Amino acid sequence: MGLFLVIAVNIPMMLFSGFYMRLNDIVGYLQWFTHVSYYRFGFEGGMLIVYDNRSQLTCSIPYCHFKNPSKLLEEFGMKDATVQQNYISLLIWIIFYNITFYLILKWKVHMSR
């Protein structure tokens, strides 16, 4: 049962992480999924580490829209995010999962007695 539950939870988390589609392009009534997706926090943190406070990128053609790294973050909807905010969100998810799995294991041991 755990195998099916993990897949059922992880697929929406991946779809609404901002990696497969931009956060701004997600339909309004599904926007809340982006705020609880732990994949989003990891992806956003990685993007901020790589592109935030970075100098201009080199480009071989005359016009490059993403020559400025802040334009790339703005396009992905990550302009106002911070790395610390993403770390805290991931830490909250880790604590939540540890408590949840502990309670489930405790309940399973209690039921088997």
Rank of each mutant, 00 (worst) to 15 (best):
S55G: 14
M13K: 05
M47D: 00
S60H: 03
L72P: 01
V83R: 08
H35W: 12
T58R: 04
M13V: 01
L90E: 02
F16D: 07
L91V: 06
M78C: 09
V50Q: 08
R54L: 15
I61T: 13
I99N: 07
D80W: 01
F101D: 07
I88F: 03
S37I: 03
Y97N: 06
A81K: 07
Y63E: 09
I88D: 04
Y20C: 05
H65N: 13
Y29R: 09
V83N: 01
V27Q: 15
D25M: 10
S37G: 07
D52T: 12
F33I: 11
G42V: 05
Y97C: 03
P62L: 04
E74Q: 15
H35K: 15
V27N: 15
E75R: 13
V83E: 04
V36Q: 00
N86V: 04
Y87M: 13
N68C: 00
D25L: 10
I26N: 08
H35F: 14
Y51D: 02
F19Q: 12
L57D: 04
R22S: 14
F43K: 00
V36F: 02
Q31S: 11
L90H: 03
F76D: 05
F66S: 02
I95T: 05
V83L: 09
H65G: 09
G18K: 08
L72F: 13
N53I: 13
R22P: 07
C59Y: 08
S37W: 03
W93D: 02
H65E: 13
K71M: 11
C59A: 08
N98L: 12
